[in-house]
């Protein structure tokens, strides 16, 4: 017998007690709860169905000069239930009805009810104009 153990590359230390420990039960229960709740959550999401399309709202976080340009940082929040991939965000500086400058950025993914941040560079100072941010389009992943 000892030879066989050496051959199979295991410690020659046989285990005697077979009864599962209380810790094992606790960890296994945690695992069971996690699995059941994750599956339950997925099924809930699936059954609720009728996923609403991405509803994107964009708000300005900050405007600051960076080098010879100006940076507008923004956050995009998806209030819908479908993920928007490759979301294009366009920022426009307007003076009255006239468009002064536009800039755009692409956000890789904006999942449902999540937020993502990005930034737009402008040559003109956005604080001197009317700044408008809007989502332009996305791809369905």
């Amino acid at each position: 017998m000892p030879d066989e153990r050496v051959e199979s590359g295991t410690e020659p230390k046989p285990r005697k007690e077979k009864k599962p420990l209380i810790w094992e039960w606790i960890v296994a229960t945690v695992g069971l709860v996690l699995v059941v709740s994750a599956i339950g959550f997925m099924l809930y999401r699936a059954i609720k169905g009728n996923a609403s399309p991405p509803v994107i709202s964009i708000s300005v976080d900050s405007i600051m000069p960076t080098g010879d340009k100006f940076l507008v940082t923004f956050r995009a929040v998806n209030h819908g239930e479908l993920t928007a991939a490759g979301l294009t965000v366009e920022g426009e500086l307007r003076s009255g009805t006239q468009s002064v400058e536009t800039s755009s950025a692409t956000l890789n993914y904006v999942p449902s009810r999540s937020k993502r941040r990005g930034g737009l560079f402008f040559i003109n100072d956005p604080r001197k104009f009317e700044l408008k941010l809007r989502p332009k389009g996305y791809e369905q992943p």
């Binding site: 285990r15 077979k18 599962p20 094992e24 039960w25 960890v27 296994a28 695992g31 069971l32 996690l34």
Partner: peptide, 22 residues
């Protein structure tokens, strides 16, 4: 994990592994 003697033990191991995976 531990040598298993019954399906119950295997299930126990399974959920321990799942907990660790999470």
């Amino acid at each position: 994990f531990e040598e298993t003697m019954s399906v119950k033990d295997d299930l126990l191991d399974t959920f321990v592994a799942y907990a660790v995976g999470f």
